[in-house]
């Protein structure tokens, strides 16, 4: 099984498509930070404008943690696009290139092949998230220095002391990776339906966008369906930056995401193990 996994990893990480996400992060993060260095301080001031009428602020809230958190908020709407590029290709890509027939005539079972492809997809997802974490926080701290973290959410404004920030970011990125695995499993499921990767990539993105929109429409009907949309729980990592932290809610959201991931993966497994390989 480990040999199979090694080959699957080699196959995935040898494809140029795998590095589109990494490349985009390498280009986008410095560009975003450069832009922030020109006018980002005003953003931090604007976020606390209401408070500054009553309070004098001393110290710098516009720092590496602030820009990393801001970027995380912005990019996590777009990271699913990068995830589905690989996850949508994982089964359909093999079908397109006609390698399934050869692969499935080898001794490993279909379930075994499915398992290593799933693990590889999830490893890729986490590798992209970890890369974003290290690159964005590392560059952010290098360019803007350290300090307290200012985070604004629906619940209000939170300012975190430096000694609590590292574990919050670590937990946030672990949860972000977890939520991206749900998106990856959706794309993987679509990938088992068809024999061309474009369909799963576009299809899963369409679902993510549709669910995002439906989940944010402020009308009673859409609010009633919100709990059944997996996109409702994708921002579970944002709860790490709310004080007091609602641990129970975070665990619940993570469990729901796990449920969705498991369901999508189970459907993908059923389809893949029963599918006629015709290409």
């Amino acid at each position: 099984m480990m040999t199979l996994l090694r080959y699957e990893l080699l196959k995935t990480y040898r494809k140029l498509r795998t590095y589109i996400g990494f490349g985009l992060i390498i280009v986008l993060v410095p560009l975003a930070y450069w832009g922030m260095s020109l006018g980002g301080e005003d953003m931090a001031r604007h976020m606390t404008a209401g408070l500054q009428k009553d309070f004098l602020f001393a110290g710098n809230l516009f720092n590496g943690w602030f820009v990393s958190h801001l970027l995380m908020n912005v990019l996590f709407i777009h990271i699913p696009f990068l995830i589905v590029l690989v996850a949508g290709d994982v089964f359909a890509g093999e079908a397109t290139s006609g390698t399934f027939r050869i692969l499935l005539t080898r001794p490993p079972s279909r379930s075994g092949i499915f398992a290593v492809k799933t693990v590889t997809t999830f490893l890729y997802t986490y590798s992209l998230v970890v890369f974003l974490a290290l690159f964005s926080t590392g560059l952010g701290l290098l360019m803007f220095g350290s300090g307290h973290l200012l985070a604004v959410s629906e619940e209000g404004v939170s300012i975190f002391a430096p000694d609590t920030i590292v574990w919050r970011f670590t937990l946030a990125y672990i949860l972000a990776g977890w939520s991206m695995c749900t998106v990856a499993s959706l794309a993987m499921m679509f990938s088992t339906f068809v024999e061309n990767a474009i369909g799963p990539i576009v299809g899963s993105m369409a679902v993510v966008i549709l669910f995002f929109i439906l989940g944010n429409l402020p009308f009673a009907f859409f609010e009633s369906i919100r709990p059944y949309l997996f996109t409702t729980y994708l921002n579970v990592w944002q709860r790490v930056f709310v004080e007091p932290m609602d641990g129970l809610r975070m665990v619940k959201d993570a469990v729901y995401l796990g449920g969705f991931t498991l369901s999508f993966t189970a459907v993908a497994w059923i389809i893949f193990t029963r599918k006629d390989i015709l290409s």
């Binding site: 408070l51 009553d54 309070f55 004098l56 602020f57 001393a58 110290g59 710098n60 809230l61 300090g147 307290h148 300012i159 002391a161 430096p162």
Partner: peptide, 16 residues
Amino acid sequence: HIEAKGFAMLPRDAIS
């Protein structure tokens, strides 16, 4: 004048 090693917010009407 106010100095803070990290960050501090102080009520305007009290500190001044």
